[in-house]
Write a protein that binds this DNA or RNA. Sequence first.
DNA 1: ACTTTTGTTAACCATTTGGTTAAACTATAT
DNA 2: ATATAGTTTAACCAAATGGTTAACAAAAGT
Lengths: 205, 205
Amino acid sequence: MVKKTKDKGAEGRILAAARKVFTTKGMAGARMQDIADEAGINKALLHYYFRDKDKLFETIFMGEAQKFFPKINAIFQSDDPLFEKMEKFVSEYIEEMQENPYLPWFVINEVNRDPERFMQSVLGNDNRPKPAKFLEQIEKEIKKGTIKRISPVHLLMNLISMTIFPFVARPMITRNLRMSDLQFKQAMEQRKKEIPKFIIDAIKK
Amino acid sequence: MVKKTKDKGAEGRILAAARKVFTTKGMAGARMQDIADEAGINKALLHYYFRDKDKLFETIFMGEAQKFFPKINAIFQSDDPLFEKMEKFVSEYIEEMQENPYLPWFVINEVNRDPERFMQSVLGNDNRPKPAKFLEQIEKEIKKGTIKRISPVHLLMNLISMTIFPFVARPMITRNLRMSDLQFKQAMEQRKKEIPKFIIDAIKK
DNA sequence: ACTTTTGTTAACCATTTGGTTAAACTATAT
DNA sequence: ATATAGTTTAACCAAATGGTTAACAAAAGT
């Protein structure tokens, strides 16, 4: 589909198109021609603004990864009480993924493809996720006796898994559970409350 | 790396090589030449045994998907009590993924790429996952009053998410939590008991 | 007005990649 | 031994794909 949206300049249209193509097909599956078509411009113009496929991809990937990670940190680093922290995490994350459903698949996919680059680029900045504080907080609550004895790492994995996985495996889930798009969206909306409730029920003494 | 493992015939070596390349790079990222090199044979021989890339991929994908899905069904359809069923699911699934760590990423990835084919091929057979019985079983337990009121669908999502997600996002997790391969393996081993315990704590009255 | 810089395109190029062909090699049957 | 069917390879081909070039158009300085 060719968009001639003249409101954005060429560069903006390229970025929007590249984002769409890369995030749905991945680096390996994306074609420069597809991006050009989607942006409604000549293929050579891609190379005028962004030297080559790698550079263009890097630009997109960084932008998307920024959406995916820093949010975690803001929550993990805050001084909120544990349960509130988890509620915020689930809620904000699901909100983000409702708007950008491709996000977790794309980021995880490309991190799997080349974990090194991920380490250096995304984690090199100050926005690398630092779960230490969160893990300590869990241990504190255990010692205080407010929650059951549980491995902080497993609790963290459970939290993240329940929040993100349904978006990664969306097609599989909707097919097998015979859910419409709307039903899926509503289910994810419910999970903003279901997941924290589930976790609190599991660990609260 | 070129293997000249003569124990398997050419066809077997091709399948093993194709499996390795496809499951790590995905359909779009896999190169026929890579598969030939990995199998230590001439590229033309690939087309002698399997007509083209699509046919070869289909063969591999079907085989891997068979590992990924039918196991679910065997457990879901059984007459075991609910908690036992969940324990078996977690335990057997993690066991399978410990042996084939690429499995969930590969299957989910390719299902995302083309959900239709997935529907027709994998789900066309009798081994399509049928969660109905499992969902009903949950509702029965709720009515019996043995577990708390919880949406069966969310409970199922939680179960699957906690079991599978760490393997899908493995590189991200090990990097951010500074885990070695061994530590990850041990953590997954622990999860065979941690996840059922977590769920039971969350829902048992 | 006109010169220079920036933006955009059509045509082209080199490499990669999936796939083919014809010949050679191997085993097996006659 | 030799014909035959199955197996394997080197060389080749055509299409796809990332990238370049040269010319042209549009803005921006002067």
